[in-house]
C-alpha cells in the first residue's frame, strides 16, 4: 500500500513541476493560465489520492476530509482560472498572437 501511495505522490509532484514549468515557459497570459490550471489540478488530485492510499492503514478518519479537499479543488480551480482569464481580457492587455477573436464582437449584439 505504501508503494502505491508513493507512486501517486511522485506522479502528482511531477505534474506540479510541469505546471510550474508551463507557467514559466509559455509566451502569453492565456496559455500560462491553461498550463497552470490543468497540470496543477491533476497534480493535486494525484497527491491527495496518494495520501488516501498512505493513510488507509492507520488513519481511516482522514478520508472524509481528503474527499472534501478533492471536491473543493475540482470546483474552485477552473472557476478561479476562468475568472482570471475574463479579468485579463477586460483589463485590455490582450496578447497580439490571437488568430481569431470572437470575444471582441460580443458587445455589438447587445
Amino acid at each position: 500500500m505504501t508503494i502505491v501511495s508513493y507512486i501517486f505522490l511522485i506522479i502528482g509532484a511531477m505534474f506540479f513541476l510541469l505546471g510550474g514549468l508551463g507557467v514559466l515557459r509559455m509566451p502569453d497570459t492565456f496559455n500560462r493560465i491553461q498550463a497552470g490550471t490543468k497540470a496543477t489540478t491533476l497534480g493535486a488530485f494525484s497527491i491527495v489520492i496518494g495520501v488516501i492510499f498512505g493513510s488507509v492503514e492507520n488513519h481511516l478518519d482522514w478520508i472524509p476530509k481528503l474527499i472534501i479537499i478533492i471536491v473543493f479543488i475540482a470546483i474552485s480551480s477552473p472557476i478561479g482560472s476562468s475568472t482570471i482569464a475574463k479579468a485579463t481580457y477586460r483589463s485590455k492587455n490582450i496578447p497580439d498572437n490571437l488568430v481569431q477573436d470572437d470575444f471582441k464582437k460580443r458587445g455589438e449584439n447587445q
Binding site: L21, G22, R25, A35, F103
Partner: peptide
C-alpha cells in the same frame, strides 16, 4: 511544455 519550441496557434 517540454518541446523545444512551443507549438501555438491560439484564438478565442
Amino acid at each position: 511544455v517540454l518541446s523545444f519550441k512551443i507549438p501555438l496557434n491560439p484564438g478565442i
